[in-house]
Amino acid sequence: MTFNELSWEALAFGAFTILTLGGALGVVFNRNLVRGAVWLVVSLFGVAGFFVLLSAPFLAAVQVLVYIGAIGILFTFAVMLTRSMTNLSERFNKQAWLSALAAVTLFLLILLAVIAPIFGEIAAPSSEVVATTEDLGVALVSGDKFVLPFEVASLLLTAAMIGAIVIAREED
């Protein structure tokens, strides 16, 4: 790896870190829920960037599609539909200290798990098994792999969608 490549990667890493952490801080410190939801999208976008840096383009794409596209929008809708909550400006979290403690504890635990080998040595990823998006796509539709779960899952989504419409539609 030349110095140039390294520095570009480091730069990108820094940028994505700022996006991720900045977005997360935005979620925590913003009292307006809609803005909080937008900050969440920023943070999730940063995580998608990390996936690109880790050579996992498929996960990055899924991160954008599912987390930003679907879940971010879902949050926004949910906040906007519960209108009384939208313009909330006073602090309503009465257990901020407790949550902070929980968050810090979780962070330390994860840090410990990464640094100290309590769950066994972290093995280097074997270089032969590099699953590309193409491998994944083939596995999903080839008959001796995952075509059955894939197709049944699509049926499941259809059923869920029809169910949602049946419940939500107005009496006609």
Partner: peptide, 13 residues
């Protein structure tokens, strides 16, 4: 798992 879901979700509705 997927079959379990496809069995259950229509029943909820």
């Amino acid at each position: 798992f997927i079959a379990l879901e496809i069995l259950s979700i229509p029943l909820y509705v």
